[in-house]
């Protein structure tokens, strides 16, 4: 059996974390390859249903990262994201979804090293948690239910 390589989706904002991850590259810092970055204008744009979508499609872990508080390119989008996340996490926990698989962080455009650390730490912790099928299975059975009941 191969070692478990988690699939991690990162939802990042264009102005801070995407640029920070660019800096990781220009600094030639190495990190785990498991992460796939999806670019957003702002963390405020991130519809948290997307996180559920990612789990439903088989992601093992999720990173959400944007500008530090008060550094938002759009003044306040990251605060909205944070507030939404506080509520959303509770809902996930209530649903029985493993909220610890979602890492919420701030990485600025100057924090290339922090991005590498964030990815490595997330990969490590998701590796410990193991593959995540529960949500995917649930989503599939729901889909099937919908098909049979249409």
């Amino acid at each position: 059996m191969d070692q478990f390589e988690p699939k991690i989706v990162a939802f990042v904002c264009n102005w801070c974390t995407y640029a920070g991850a660019d800096l990781t590259g220009t600094s030639r810092l190495k990190y785990a390859h498991n992460v796939r970055i999806i670019r957003f204008p702002c963390t405020g744009r991130i519809d948290f249903l997307l996180l559920q979508q990612a789990f439903a499609k088989g992601a093992d872990g999720i990173i959400v990262s944007g500008c530090h508080p008060n550094d938002c390119h759009y003044t306040s989008g990251n605060f909205h994201a944070r507030r939404r996340w506080m509520v959303f996490r509770q809902m996930l926990e209530n649903m029985g979804v493993e909220a610890e698989r979602i890492v919420f962080s701030w990485v600025s455009a100057a924090e290339g090293a922090k991005w590498a650390d964030l990815v490595n730490e997330t990969v490590e912790s998701i590796k410990k948690l193991g593959p995540y099928h529960k949500y995917q299975d649930m989503a599939k059975s729901l889909e099937e239910w919908e098909v049979t009941h249409e």
């Binding site: 989706v9 405020g44 519809d47 997307l50």
Partner: peptide, 29 residues
Amino acid sequence: GCGTCVALCRSKSIDLYGYSNKQIYTEVS
């Protein structure tokens, strides 16, 4: 174009050119 309103909209009536719901959900999938 920050898109905060898009994520917030309860009836999914707002969308953002360049980062539309269709585009982003497809990316995840």
